[in-house]
């Protein structure tokens, strides 16, 4: 049975096909309203993540399916010491597909090895979050009309930002991608990703600390949260934080057709005066998340419409 644990579990062709289905869902909502009739999705969320869980649940309901599950370890048997494997074995008696969120890295892989139903990794600690990456890809493709030949800037916390690592990994398989890494020295992209993913795939990249200087070159700007707890001192944080805040004023120098993405939730790294700029796409991105999850659920359940 197919599962989605890491974005690289999907080939480029499979991703493209799934994004086609997502586009078709957006265009023809009615056509898909009953395709998962009688099917159940189990959301096993060992740590709370309201945003991701609601997106999965809405996706399944819009396909005409049902949802069951739990939303924090405290309300599940895991708090009584049950293993991930046993909780999964129990859940697959009742569900046709599982979406799992877990604070420990690799937990969804453990689940996928013991069950007969597909498992979707809905985030495992700081490790993988493939449905966020599918969301990002769908948003870029809908806005730009392509997933090749563009310059994308990643700004903020590139060291711990798993959504950044995962999107870079996914984009490395497309042609003509140029990557601009924008972060303070303390939060630079880990060297193994630079080597294994960017250099090994021969991708052109630039590393800088200055957002404003590179902004005019970008077709896509992927903003991330700069978390205070990552810094050594408060002064350091305040000094660096402001240089990675996107404001309406800084956008004056950006391209007209730039798109600005953010995995959300944001704190203050995008000032609210950017929200009604037509280049701000992060709320639409959240909506794309639901549609791409619908396409993914269909794919993993083997449901194909012509």
């Amino acid at each position: 049975m197919r599962s989605l644990i890491n974005i690289l579990d999907l080939s480029v062709e499979e991703i493209d096909r799934m994004l086609d289905v997502a586009d078709d869902i957006i265009a023809n909502r009615e056509k898909y309203s009953e395709v998962c009739h009688g099917k159940k999705l189990a959301t096993l969320f060992f740590e709370p993540s309201t945003r991701t869980r609601l997106s999965f649940e809405a996706a399944m309901y819009e396909l005409g399916g049902n949802v069951l599950g739990f939303s924090a370890a405290a309300s599940s048997s895991a708090s009584k010491g049950e293993s991930v494997a046993d909780t999964t074995r129990m859940a697959c008696c009742y569900a046709d597909i599982i979406a799992m969120r877990h604070p420990k890295e690799g937990a969804p892989l453990v689940a996928s090895k013991v069950t007969s139903v597909p498992v979707i990794n809905a985030g495992d600690g700081g490790h993988n979050h493939p449905t966020q990456t599918l969301t990002d890809l769908l948003t870029i493709r809908r806005k730009k009309g392509r997933l090749n030949n563009f310059t994308i800037g990643f700004c903020g916390d590139l060291k711990f930002g798993r959504t950044v690592h995962s999107l870079i990994t996914a984009l490395a398989r497309y042609e003509g991608i140029k990557i601009v890494l924008i972060s303070p020295d303390e939060l630079k992209l880990p060297s193994y990703i630079k080597k294994d993913v960017i250099k090994n795939n021969g991708i052109e990249y630039v590393q800088t600390t200055d957002l404003e200087a590179v902004l005019p070159e970008l077709d896509v700007l992927y903003m991330t949260r700069v978390q205070q707890e990552r810094f050594f001192s408060e002064e350091e944080y305040i000094r660096l934080r402001d240089s990675y805040i996107l404001t309406r004023k800084k956008l004056d120098k950006a391209k007209e057709d730039l798109i600005i993405l953010h995995p959300l939730p944001r704190v203050n790294e995008i000032s609210t005066d950017v929200d009604d700029d037509p280049r701000a796409c992060y709320f639409e991105q959240a909506l794309c998340g639901k549609f791409v999850r619908m396409a993914l659920i269909m794919e993993l359940l083997g449901i194909h419409l012509d």
Partner: peptide, 11 residues
């Protein structure tokens, strides 16, 4: 890795 699932599920 202390964040790895194998660190809490020893079996």
């Amino acid at each position: 890795n202390p964040r790895c699932i194998t660190s809490v599920e020893q079996e």
